[in-house]
Amino acid sequence: MRDRLSFYILRESPIHRMNPLTKLTLVFSLILLAFLGPVEWLAILLFTTVILPLSFLAHVGREFLSATARLLLPVIGFLFVMQSIFLPGGGTALVQVWVLDITLENVNIAFVNATRILTMISSFLLLLLTTHPSALMSDLARRGVPGPISYTVTSTLQILPQMQVKAATIMDAQRARGLETQGNLMKRIRALLPLVAPLVFGSLVDVEERAIAIEARAFNSPRQKTSLVEIDDRPIDRRIRWGLILVVIFLLGSRLWLK
């Protein structure tokens, strides 16, 4: 059994205590500012002065850095190198590789693009490390996201690991029977079917009984649903959300003004 269903790490911190919607607002504010802010280097500034310090404030700094390194460095590294080399135009040649000029302008653009992606994805990462998915969903459900949608998300979080375990079992069983998962393209395509078919049909057939089971538990009741878990939404959370919205409006407005 996988005990970690997501990136979430249970710790005691002001960021963990923050309401999920507040954190979600923070994420979207950071993304908007990184992409549409008044200056291009705002993205890297936000990463170093907001996201990174917050991750340490949340006592997940180490995990944040390692997840960033694992998930993001390859992506933005590749992006940076590719764009530096292949983007057209730019006058100030730095180096010449084969027939391509690497120009200062293009390195600059590549850097801005890479840091924007860094800020976008890492701010999500900060949310995920400090928020249990079911807390996020029940808070959103309380605020008007339809109950079945939050059911669907949390249910996927449970079903997926089950299916991955089953998939691994099937994979091992088929390999033991001599199925080749290496070799040429044809062989690998042919390998897909016996791996996938039992898994897919098995899990689809279960849908009917699970639908009966949740209907038997009043899933479709028109009554106003309640929630067992209580999720804090303190006055400070509301103030932070409004503050963030104002900052975003101010900075986006200042961009228009500067134009």
């Binding site: 109950g147 249910s155 009554r223 309640t226």
Partner: peptide
Amino acid sequence: SGSKFTVYEEIAFGLEN
């Protein structure tokens, strides 16, 4: 139900509904 992380919450599912 598939949407709850503990037995306690699982049993509460119908009552929440």
